[in-house]
Simulated assay, not measured.
Amino acid sequence: MSLRVTFVAAGGGSSPLAERFEDDRPLDRDGWWQVERAAPGLLPLAAADLRYCSPAPRSRATGDGLGYTPLVQPALRDCDMGRWRGLTPREAMAREPAAAELWFADARAAPHGGESLLGFIGRVGGWLDTRPLEDGGRIVAVAEPSVIRAALVYALRAPPATYWTLDVRPLSTAVVVGRAGRWSLRFDGAPGCGPARP
C-alpha cells in the first residue's frame, strides 16, 4: 500500500526571496480572498483520510478556510531561523552578508543560530516518512511554501541546493506518492482543470 500526500501551500505567500523567515503573520485580506477564490477547486481534498497543517497562522487559517479542519503538526513548522526570524532573505544578506552567504552555500551550516537547511529538510522528511499507512492512504497537509519545498527536496532525494530553485505559489498543490524512503512526485490533471482529486 502507498500513501498519497497532497501538500497545499498556505494563502498569502510570495516569491522565495520575498518570504519572511518563520513568518507568523495571519492571513491578510488578499490572503483570504485567495482562499475564497481557490476553495471550490480545493474543497474535494477535504475528503482525505487525514488532514494536517503546519502551526503557522497562515497555514491554520488556510486549512480552516478550505473546510479541512486540519490537525496541527509541529514537525511541519518553518525552519528555525534563529536571529533571522522575521527577516526576508534579502534583509538577512544585507545585515550579515558573510553568514547569509555561508547559509545559502552550505546546507549543513546554521550561522543564524537556528536550524540548518539540511536539518530542516530532514525534519520535514521525517514527518513524511512516519505517516501511518494503516490510517488511510490519502493525506492533505497545508503548509508554508518553505515546508513544501523541503518536503519535495526530501521526496525526490534531490541535492539540498534544489530547495532554492523551487517556486511554490499560494494555494498551489504538490502531490507525493509512496511510503517511507520511497517517494515520487506526481503530476495530475491538465492546466486549468484545478487540483487533483484526493
Score class of each variant (00 low, 15 high):
residue 1 M to Y: 07
residue 7 F to S: 00
residue 7 F to E: 01
residue 9 A to Q: 10
residue 12 G to R: 01
residue 14 S to R: 15
residue 22 E to T: 10
residue 23 D to R: 05
residue 27 L to H: 07
residue 29 R to I: 11
residue 30 D to V: 11
residue 39 A to E: 14
residue 39 A to D: 03
residue 43 L to D: 03
residue 45 L to M: 05
residue 47 A to N: 04
residue 48 A to L: 08
residue 49 D to V: 05
residue 51 R to V: 01
residue 55 P to M: 01
residue 56 A to T: 15
residue 58 R to L: 08
residue 63 G to W: 12
residue 63 G to C: 10
residue 65 G to F: 09
residue 66 L to H: 03
residue 74 P to D: 13
residue 77 R to E: 13
residue 79 C to F: 07
residue 84 W to M: 10
residue 85 R to E: 14
residue 85 R to M: 09
residue 85 R to P: 10
residue 87 L to C: 10
residue 91 E to H: 06
residue 95 R to G: 05
residue 96 E to Y: 11
residue 101 E to T: 13
residue 104 F to T: 07
residue 114 G to V: 12
residue 115 E to N: 04
residue 115 E to W: 06
residue 115 E to F: 08
residue 120 F to H: 11
residue 124 V to F: 12
residue 132 P to W: 02
residue 134 E to F: 08
residue 138 R to D: 09
residue 143 A to S: 02
residue 149 R to N: 08
residue 150 A to V: 03
residue 151 A to L: 02
residue 152 L to E: 02
residue 153 V to N: 07
residue 153 V to Q: 07
residue 159 P to H: 14
residue 160 P to H: 12
residue 161 A to P: 07
residue 164 W to Q: 10
residue 170 P to W: 05
residue 170 P to H: 05
residue 172 S to R: 06
residue 176 V to D: 00
residue 176 V to I: 09
residue 177 V to E: 15
residue 179 R to S: 04
residue 181 G to F: 05
residue 181 G to P: 02
residue 181 G to R: 01
residue 188 D to W: 09
residue 188 D to E: 15
residue 190 A to S: 08
residue 190 A to F: 14
residue 194 G to T: 09
residue 198 P to I: 06
